[in-house]
Design a protein around this nucleic acid. Structure first.
Lengths: 155, 155
DNA sequence: GTAATTTTGTTTAGCATCTAAACAAATATA
DNA sequence: TATATTTGTTTAGATGCTAAACAAAATTAC
C-alpha cells in the first residue's frame, strides 16, 4: 500500500509540474495578443470576480498589490481589462473588455479540454467512487490553504 | 452532474494554483541556504535520477539546456550539487552533495506532509474507490504529457 | 585517418514576473 | 479638523526563463 501511495503522490506531483510546463508558452485566444500565463490567469480572476479591485485580486492570486498593479496596467493598455469607477481614484473596479471576455472564454474551454477524458472517466464511476475523489480534493485544498495562511502570518 | 464536475475541476485548478503559491517562498531545509523552488526542484530531480546530465535534466524538467546550465552553476557554487566525470568536459554527470541530500530529504518530507491527511483518507477507501482515483490521475498525466509533446513538436 | 556533422554544455542579452519599499491619494476614525 | 488607515502606483533589484551564438567533444562519413 505504501508503494501504491508513493506512486500516486508522484503522479500528483507530475501533474502539478506538467501544468506549469503547459502554461509556460504564451497563447493567443483569437484576440491578436500573445498572452503569458500570468496575464491569462489575471484575466480569468477578473472574469470570475465581478467588480474586484487591486487589493482583493492580490489576495485571491497570492501576490503583492504591486505585482497586480503592474499586470493590470499592461492589460489595460492592451485593452483586455477596463478600470471603471474612475471618478474615484481609489478603489478602482476592474472588469473585462469584450476582448478580455474572449480570452476568458478561451481559457475556460482550454481548461475543460484538459479534463475532458478524466471527466468521462469520473462520470462512469459509481457514486461511492466519486465520493472519495471529491473528498480527496477538498482535503488537499484545505491543507494547502492552511499552509498558505500559516505562511502569510509567519512572513 | 455537470455542476458537480465543474466544482471538481475548480477544486483541481485551485490545488494547482495553491501549490505554486506555497512554493513561491524560498525555504531553508537546514543547510543555511535560502532556496527558491527552481533550485529545490532541480535538486529533487538530480536526486531522483542517478548520474543525470544537463541535456536530460532539461528534458525532464521541460526547460532549455541554458536554463539548467545556469541553475546548476549556482547550485554547484553553493555546494549543493557536484559535477563528476570532469576528465571529460562534455557529458557532465551530476549528483547531490551531502548538503544537497539534506535538501532532497527535506523537500521529500515536505511533500509527504502536504498529502498526509489525503493519504489517510485514501487508505480508508475501498479498493474500488481507490481504483478510480488512480485511473483519474493516470489519465490526467497522460493527457498533459500529450499536450507537452504536441507543444514541443509544434513550437 | 581526416573532415564534416552532431551532441553537449556554457554564456550572453533581453524579457516576464515578482517583491519590498517608498510614495501619493482618498477614506475613515479620533 | 487632525491623524490613521486603506488603496493603488512606481521604482529598483532579483529570479528564472528563452533564443542564439559559441566552444568543445564525440560520432559519422568518406
Amino acid at each position: 500500500m505504501n508503494k501504491e501511495l508513493q506512486t500516486l503522490i508522484d503522479l500528483f506531483l507530475k501533474i502539478l509540474h506538467l501544468y506549469s510546463v503547459i502554461n509556460k508558452k504564451p497563447k493567443d485566444y483569437g484576440t491578436g495578443d500573445l498572452l503569458y500565463f500570468t496575464e491569462i490567469h489575471t484575466i480569468t480572476m477578473v472574469g470570475k470576480n465581478k467588480k474586484i479591485n487591486v487589493t482583493r485580486l492580490a489576495e485571491v492570486m497570492g501576490v503583492t498589490k504591486g505585482a497586480i498593479s503592474q499586470t493590470i496596467k499592461k492589460l489595460v493598455s492592451k485593452n483586455l481589462i477596463l478600470k471603471t469607477n474612475l471618478r474615484n481614484r481609489k478603489e478602482v473596479n476592474l472588469k473585462l473588455s469584450e476582448k478580455g471576455r474572449l480570452v476568458y472564454k478561451g481559457q475556460k474551454s482550454f481548461q475543460k479540454d484538459i479534463f475532458t477524458f478524466a471527466a468521462a472517466l469520473y462520470k462512469r464511476g459509481t457514486p461511492e467512487q466519486r465520493d472519495l475523489v471529491r473528498r480527496l480534493f477538498i482535503e488537499i485544498v484545505a491543507n494547502m490553504q492552511m499552509r498558505v495562511k500559516v505562511q502569510e502570518s509567519a512572513g
